[in-house]
Each structure stands twice: as C-alpha cells, then as structure tokens.
C-alpha cells in the first residue's frame, strides 16, 4: 500500500520532532554525530513509524523485524527514535555521552533496548544483517532484516564480502539502505576515493538496486514496498541525502560529521528545522 497523504504528513511531523531531538541531544551531550544523524532521519522514520513489525514493549520478541544501523555513528539519531518509540524513558537521553550512561555515541545492544546490534565500527553491519536474514530463512521465520549503511563505509572490503554472500543466499528478506550524503569525515567521498557508480556496483554483485531521494517519504515508502516484492535477491536502496539536512549552516558541510552546539547554534538549528517543515 503506497503511503497516503495522511501517512506522509504524519511521518513529516515525526521527522521534524526527531530532528529537533537530535539537535537537543547534540547540545546537551556536548557534541555528537549530527550531520549523519540528520541525513539518515527520514529513512529511519519511515521504517520505525510505518514499516517495521516491532513492539517496543517486547524489544527481544523473536519474530520482530530487525534493524541494524551499520553506520553506528548515527546512534544519536537512532536513540532519538528508540526513545520516542518508548523502548526506554526518553528523558534518559539527557545523559547521552555522559560518564556511566547507557548511551554512548555508538549504541550498545546490551544496554539500549531496541538496538539489535552494537555497531560503530564501519563495515560490520551488513554482515550481521546477512547473518540475521540467513538465520530467518533457515528457521522459516517471516521477519525482515533492514540495514542502514553510510556511503563512506562502502570503502570497507567487508561490505562487499557481505554483499557477495547475501546475494549468493538469495536473501530477499534483507533490505539495505545507503545513506548517500556524499561526505565522509575528511571531505567529499568522490574527492577522497571513488565510490560511484554505486548502482552498478551493487547490481553487479547480484542485488536489486533502487535509487531514490532519501528525504522523500513517497519515494522511501515506495522503495521499501518494492523491496518486499523482490524475489530471490536482496535489495539495496541507495538514498540520495543531504548531510545536516534541514539545518542550513550544516547542510553539505563535511565539518558537521561531528560537532557541538552552543545555545545560539542550537536555537538557530531548531528554527531552521521549523522553517523547513513550515515550507514543506
């Protein structure tokens, strides 16, 4: 079922709230991976508020859909969603990054309910997702596995190992995303190395490849639903996104991979987000 206008409005409201929470956490935490948290937001909001078959009251329910955030540095943005979904008391997020807190920059599945795998080291998530999807097939389980990767992490050879084995096992219960914001820590991906053409790369590895605007809920929903119909191969949804999305002074600036905010910057960022959604 394609998303209705009502769905899209609801998802946009959630995305706005999550983006504002990301700004708030970045402020209280003394810094955070805000750029990539903002670029991934719409993908995760679509999953968590429309498509994932999950129950926040039963975070270890064995038939739940799995979500692996392979770009683990997006943990700040992921935690904002898990808290809002009710996996834990979201007021705990004021302790993000604080000593002894369950919330470090990269979420720990043994400490954070709703976190299906501890990620942060890049190039690990797709392999874990392949294992989960393969396990589901072997056990005859119907759950789906989703994996959200960064584009910079595609430099890691292990991603391509996992891509080979995922296609070989015909994992049509696996949908992965690339948050293609074109930036890594040191600068634009294509200036540091050559990642493009990602469509051809994944297609040649045997994946169904879809390319969408990663900030357009109609496109995100359409791609997720299309992936559910693909048989005998996994799907890679390459999402063109903007690092720092919705905050004008952060957008497309690699220096906002990680950063801190003073109260003026926070207020300006929150105003940008309000302004963006007022126009939408």
């Amino acid at each position: 079922m394609p998303l209705t206008q009502e769905d899209i409005k609801r998802l946009q409201e959630k995305a706005k709230d999550i983006r504002k929470t990301i700004v708030d956490i970045t402020f209280t935490a003394g810094g955070g991976h805000i750029g990539g948290s903002l670029s991934q937001t719409d993908i995760l909001v679509a999953l968590y508020y429309k498509y994932l078959n999950i129950d926040p009251k039963k975070p270890r329910w064995e038939d739940r859909d799995r979500m692996i955030l392979s770009k683990g540095h997006g943990g700040l943005g992921w935690a904002a969603i898990l808290g809002e979904k009710g996996y834990f008391d979201k007021t705990l997020l004021k302790n993000f990054n604080k000593t002894g807190s369950p919330f470090g920059m990269h979420l720990d599945m043994l400490k954070v309910p709703g976190c299906d795998a501890s990620t942060g080291s890049l190039g690990h998530g797709l392999g874990i997702a392949v294992g989960l999807a393969l396990g589901a097939k072997m056990a005859g389980k119907k759950y789906r596995t989703y994996c959200v990767m960064g584009d910079g992490e595609l430099c890691e050879g292990s991603v391509w190992e996992a891509a080979i084995i995922g296609a070989f096992h015909k994992l049509d219960n696996l949908t992965a995303f690339v948050d293609r914001n074109n930036l890594m820590i040191d600068g634009p991906t294509e200036e540091i190395t050559q990642l493009d053409n990602l469509n051809d790369k994944f297609a040649s590895f045997g994946w169904e490849v879809l390319r969408i605007d990663g900030h357009d809920f109609t496109a995100i929903g359409g791609a997720i639903e299309k992936a559910q119909t693909i048989k005998a191969k996994p799907t890679m949804i390459i999402c063109d996104t903007v690092k720092g999305k919705c905050v004008d002074y952060m957008e497309n600036d690699y220096k906002w991979h990680y950063g801190g905010l003073d109260s003026d910057m926070r207020d300006k960022a929150l105003a940008c987000i309000d302004n963006y959604y007022a126009k939408a």
Binding site: E62, R66, D116, A117, G123, H124, G125, L126, G127, I128, A129, V130, G131, L132, A133, L134, G135, A136, M138, A139, K141, G157, S158, E161, A162, I164, I165
Partner: peptide, 18 residues
C-alpha cells in the same frame, strides 16, 4: 568463500537470530 571478516559478522548475525 574466502571472506574471513564477514565470516565472523555473519556468525554474529546468526547468533542474534538464535
């Protein structure tokens, strides 16, 4: 296949799957 890194991440995923 000759993919030792993913050997262990896929094993982790299978363990997470029970």
């Amino acid at each position: 296949g000759i993919a030792e890194n993913s050997l262990f991440s896929v094993a982790a995923g299978l363990a997470l799957a029970g």
